[in-house]
């Protein structure tokens, strides 16, 4: 009970909601870093996954590599990157860059694999019927395959987003800000209120992101795909 009370007290303290080390600015750091890495990962992985799915080329080894990639522990990836990024920039190379690169690297595979599987899973007869009606390949991709694969594509983005938010927390270990900062500091200062306050904030951010993605999916996916059976 002490823990809950301490956490609530920490969260309720107006001092913790102010200044460059306050909750709003840490939250913004966290969201910005997560958003940028998700965007960069999507810009790389989405077109690649769509292309592999549409053409069927290189599917086996790209998807195998991507799946093996998923098994990499985030913490190890950040640690491994530090020696390289510090060479490029001794300051940010220790803080921002390794975390950012690790997040991009880890967000890519779920986006890529789901994009590939979503597109490859579209009924071949349907694609052929679309081709037979005189749709060009790009029209088939954007007008048939992507809309039909959208639920699967969105799941990949959603998984990646949640993973990115979790990984951003680890960035604090390497001197980057974000909500993970409270967990590190709380641990160092033996302040359980701050430590678990940080944990609660990260968890809520992850849940809010999940909810936002689900709402967006519901808006974007055609009702023709979500309805069941003849009425």
């Amino acid at each position: 009970m002490d823990l809950i009370a301490a956490t609530a007290q920490w969260l309720a303290d107006p001092l913790n909601w102010q200044g460059p080390n306050g909750i709003p600015s840490r939250l913004m750091e966290h969201v910005a870093l997560s958003g940028v890495s998700l965007l960069v990962a999507a810009l790389i992985a989405l077109p690649l996954g769509l292309w592999i799915g549409h053409t069927g080329r290189f599917s086996w080894w790209i998807v195998s590599t991507a799946n093996a990639w998923r098994a990499l522990p985030s913490f190890a990836v950040i640690g491994l990157l530090v020696p390289f990024t510090t060479v490029i920039d001794p300051d940010l190379g220790f803080t921002l860059y390794p975390t950012l690169v690790a997040m991009i690297v880890l967000a890519g595979p779920p986006i890529l694999v789901n994009a590939y599987q979503g597109i490859a899973g579209v009924d071949g007869e349907l694609v052929e019927a679309a081709r037979a009606m005189g749709m060009k390949e790009s029209q088939i991709l954007f007008g048939v395959e992507i809309p039909i694969a959208l639920p699967v594509l969105a799941t990949g983005l959603r998984l990646a987003a949640v993973q990115v938010i979790a990984t951003a927390t680890l960035g604090a270990t390497f001197g980057f800000g974000g909500l993970g900062r409270f967990i590190i500091l709380g641990d160092a200062n033996r302040d359980n209120g701050e430590l678990f306050g940080g944990v609660v904030l990260v968890a809520m951010l992850a849940l809010a992101t999940l909810g936002a993605f689900l709402l967006l999916e519901r808006r974007l996916v055609s009702t023709g795909l979500t309805r069941r059976a003849a009425g």
């Binding site: 009924d123 007869e125 349907l126 052929e128 019927a129 679309a130 081709r131 037979a132 009606m133 005189g134 007008g143 048939v144 809309p147 039909i148 996916v221 055609s222 023709g224 795909l225």
Partner: peptide, 18 residues
Amino acid sequence: LRRRIGYVIQQVGLLPHL
């Protein structure tokens, strides 16, 4: 050519999202 040729198949091939 294809746009001038009607095409009907057993599985119908209606696009489910439209």
